[in-house]
Design a protein around this nucleic acid. Structure first.
Lengths: 172, 172
DNA sequence: GAGCACGTACTCGGATAGGTGTTGTCCGAGTGATGCCGG
DNA sequence: CCGGCATCACTCGGACAACACCTATCCGAGTACGTGCTC
C-alpha cells in the first residue's frame, strides 16, 4: 500500500517512453503495456485521464496511438500525478471544530472563519511535496534515466516500438 | 477524498484535547467522541493504534481513559500520522522496469541494482513532506491553536471534561 | 493508369465486475470504584 | 470504627459488517489504411 496508487507509476513510465518516441509513429496503449508487462486495458483507461488533462494527444485509426501534447520539458511530474490521481489534496479538513458540543450546532464566527491549525500544517507539508514534484519535468527525469540506462538499450527500445508500429496491419 | 483519511484528523484533534487535560482525569474515548461530535466506536478503534504506537497510555476500569505517554512537546505530528496511517510511503515502486519485454524475464543487474529515478524523486518529495510534519510537535500545534481559541473556551472545555469525569458512576 | 468508394482491422473510449482498504458498529473480557458486611 | 469482599457500572479491546475506491477487464463506436472496381 501507498498514498499514491500504481497509476502514478504506470503513467510516468509510459510518458517517459512516449517522450523517447516523440518524432516516431505514436505508440498505442497496447504497445506500451506489452512492452512494460502491464495490463493493456488499464493503460488505456489511464490515458483517457492523461488526455483529458491535456498532457497527451490521441490519434485514432489503425496507425493511431498517443503522443505528448507538449515538449517533455513543459510537462512536470506534478501535472502527471494530478492528472492521474485527480488532484487529491493530502488532507481534507472536515472542520470538526464546529461540531464541538459546547457550540451546540452554532459555532461562533471566530471558529468558522479562522483556519484550522492542523489543516494549515498539512497544507504546508503538501506544498513542500508538490514543490518537489512540480520542479521536475519529464525531460529532467528522462535525463536522469539516461545516466543509468545505456544508449544501447534505448536504441533497442526505439527499434521495438518501430517494429511494432510497422507490424500493424501487415502480419496477418 | 484525500491521501490521508479522516483518522488523521480525528487522531490529532483528540490528542490535542488530551494534551490540555494532562493533569486531569483521563478522558475516555466516548467523552472525546461526544465532545467533538464524532463516532465513539471509531475513536476507540483509533486509540488502539495510538496505544500500540506508544503515544498514549490507556487506563482501564470505571475511571479509565487515555493520557499522553510523553510530554506533548515530545510527540510530533508525524508520529501521530504514522501511527494512524500505518507508516505508508507516498509511493511504492513496483520496479516495472524489470518487466520490460526486452529483458524477457531476466533483467540485467544494472537495472535491478540501480534505483528507479521515479522512485528517487518520490522519496525526495516524501522526505520534504515528512520533514514538515516531523518538525512540529503537539505542543507547537497547541500553541498555534491557543492564539486563535480564546482562553474562555479552553476553560469551558476543561470544565466539560471534568464534569463528565465526575458524572461517571454517580448520575444513575 | 488514376481516382474513388468500400471493407476491414485496428484503435480509442466509456461502461462494466472483482479485490482491497477505510469507515463505522457491535459486543465481550477486564478492572477499579463503591457499598456492604463482619470483626 | 476499620478492613475485606462481592457487586457493578464503566472502560478498553478486538471481532464484525457496509461502503467506497482502486485495479483490472470487456465490448462498442470511430477511423485511417489497403484493396478492388470503375472510368
Amino acid at each position: 500500500m501507498a498514498l499514491y496508487g500504481s497509476s502514478v507509476e504506470y503513467g510516468l513510465h509510459c510518458l517517459l517512453h512516449l517522450s523517447e518516441a516523440a518524432d516516431r509513429a505514436p505508440p498505442s496503449a497496447k504497445d506500451l503495456a506489452e512492452y512494460q508487462g502491464i495490463s493493456p486495458s488499464f493503460v488505456a483507461k489511464l490515458f483517457t485521464k492523461l488526455e483529458k488533462a491535456g498532457l497527451v494527444i490521441s490519434a485514432e485509426g489503425v496507425r493511431g496511438g498517443f503522443r505528448l501534447a507538449k515538449p517533455k520539458g513543459d510537462i512536470s511530474v506534478l501535472q502527471v500525478v494530478d492528472a492521474v490521481e485527480g488532484g487529491q489534496p493530502l488532507f481534507k479538513c472536515k472542520e470538526i471544530r464546529g461540531n464541538c458540543i459546547l457550540y451546540d450546532g452554532n459555532p461562533p464566527d471566530r471558529v468558522t472563519s479562522s483556519v484550522c491549525q492542523i489543516h494549515a500544517l498539512m497544507q504546508e507539508a503538501e506544498l513542500k511535496m508538490r514543490g518537489v514534484l512540480g520542479a521536475r519535468s519529464l525531460a529532467d527525469l528522462d535525463k536522469s534515466v539516461g545516466q543509468v540506462v545505456p544508449a544501447q538499450i534505448k536504441q533497442a527500445s526505439r527499434d521495438w516500438f518501430e517494429t511494432r508500429a510497422q507490424a500493424r496491419r501487415t502480419d496477418s
